[in-house]
Nucleic acid binder design. Sequence first.
DNA 1: CTGAAAGCGCTTACAG
DNA 2: CTGAAAGCGCTTACAG
Lengths: 340, 340
Amino acid sequence: MAQKVKLSTIADQLGVSTATVSLALRDSPLVAEDTRQKIKDTALDMGYIYNRRAASLRTSRSGIIGVVVHDIMNPFYAEILKAIESELDRSGQTFILSNHYDSVPKQRDFLETLLQLGADGVIMSPAIDTPSRDIKLAEDNGMPAVLIARSVTDIDVPTYRGDDAYGIALATNHLIGLGHKSIAFVGGADNTSTGRDRYRGYVEALKKAGLEVDPMLRVSGPRTKQEGFEAAVNFLSMSQKPTAAVCWNDLVAIGLINGIYRAGLTPGKDISVTGYDDLIEASISMPALTTVWNGQSMVGRRAARALLDRLSGSDEVNGLHLIKPEMRIRQSTAPMVPRA
Amino acid sequence: MAQKVKLSTIADQLGVSTATVSLALRDSPLVAEDTRQKIKDTALDMGYIYNRRAASLRTSRSGIIGVVVHDIMNPFYAEILKAIESELDRSGQTFILSNHYDSVPKQRDFLETLLQLGADGVIMSPAIDTPSRDIKLAEDNGMPAVLIARSVTDIDVPTYRGDDAYGIALATNHLIGLGHKSIAFVGGADNTSTGRDRYRGYVEALKKAGLEVDPMLRVSGPRTKQEGFEAAVNFLSMSQKPTAAVCWNDLVAIGLINGIYRAGLTPGKDISVTGYDDLIEASISMPALTTVWNGQSMVGRRAARALLDRLSGSDEVNGLHLIKPEMRIRQSTAPMVPRA
DNA sequence: CTGAAAGCGCTTACAG
DNA sequence: CTGAAAGCGCTTACAG
């Protein structure tokens, strides 16, 4: 590899100062149009590579934004990430991604790394049981945070997520409207706000309709397609013989549907199943999934925008911003038929 | 936010030099055990945050590794990434992720960003038509590259991917063995090595079995579940009435299967379908997908290891490393039945 | 075992 | 419009 080209290499070559080169490369009007062009051409010719570590050491702005979610392999987060990416790209920020897999220590390590790199800010879907102190650590060291998908209590940072209780009520009411009386709730758990809020929304919708709430109809735990698939056995062997299932999310619903098929029943006919999120694949799964749109791309876009706003000094975005979910009726739900 | 704590803050506090503090924090045996402990305690107390930009400016090692793939939302890449992540985590490297969506300019931008950040190396699944010059740019500036999933000609860097021609022949032979004579090939295109190699492997397997190769049986293009789903119409209306489809990957296969269901036929009975990759969801899709294991996690793990090896000076890993695929027979294939 | 000093490659007042 | 010089926060020879 050739001798490294730096500002001073270019300056020497042209007989100007490094200050002039620095200014010229950033298109400062302080440098004569003519000089500027010559400097840029030379930089290109010499294969100059801007050293952001050096610049950022001086300016204490890194152009880096951290993003941490539970798991990027999960399409729900992937859809949010895609929206964040396109928003940040536009503003020329580099983003660094990490999974925390709901490990608070892993998440803290990542926040620490971001601080060490001088990241300008962080967008996070906080790990289960994230202490507000961890977010404070970031904020106190000049790295503003924006939360997505989950809330953390005791701290006032901008938070973007769907209105879970409202959304799950939409799904539950849809099933009630189809005549179902024994409706199970499959997936999620009480250790996340989404787990709690969605179960609560389901319970309240049943109550409001005058239906009995049976805690035994809850299958707590499943979050993935795999786990939804495995939950089918559990669901199908319930003594209450539920004719429908409100699932905690689309992945669980799709898994559950496949498990029901495997058992010889036909989802969308014998058994009705609703999802939650409206992932891209919900509309092409078999049968097409009745679900609740949860605004992933809107969450991502608005969270990114909010962070950029905070970086430019505005703080009016603080607080909880709920996205209003919408019902998407497709083929996986049908009027109730009693189970044998 | 309080006054920023730096090495000199700690040094002043304890009445030692910054050199001593620097050494102590990195556990150098040059510093007395006693002093070392005192310094570490003080650093923790004062909430010291290590400034990696400053350190890296001095050492020209950043601890950053770039990873660029087509699309992290694609489970195929997600599975590779997960393996890379766990391998890099172990060695304390931070990794920066980016999608190139097969845009060469976007990929080049990212490489440039990595160079600016002083990344130690990059793992990439090159965008379609990546010129070897772009990889040379990285290498020439001291940022070694390792390729995954796809090859680039005219450059000798370590490359890890599956043996596509061999793998697709496994799938094709499996169908031939089940008595199928009219076998379509769905998905992929000639602009990637995987597209070319897999189609070639299919053609050769047919020839070897003495079956006619009909170019009209190829549906070129689809890469995603959505596109596989849409390709079903095309596939089902072929005048040759194929009884089986070799799909370019699992996503296309799963999409195609859903599309075939939608049309009222039963995949795994009326029509046989094979996938490629053996994604996690292949085994829980409906029907369980017969496919070819493509070693995603092995590719990721070995690529990460190879890069770490290159960083520590060893160069014996150069060249193409093919992972040997394996057949996974499940429910989506069955003995041939003629189509009406 | 510890300290004083130079230097990594930028940017930013400050002068002219 | 351009230059000389200081400084961002580390690490690394070099001295002692």
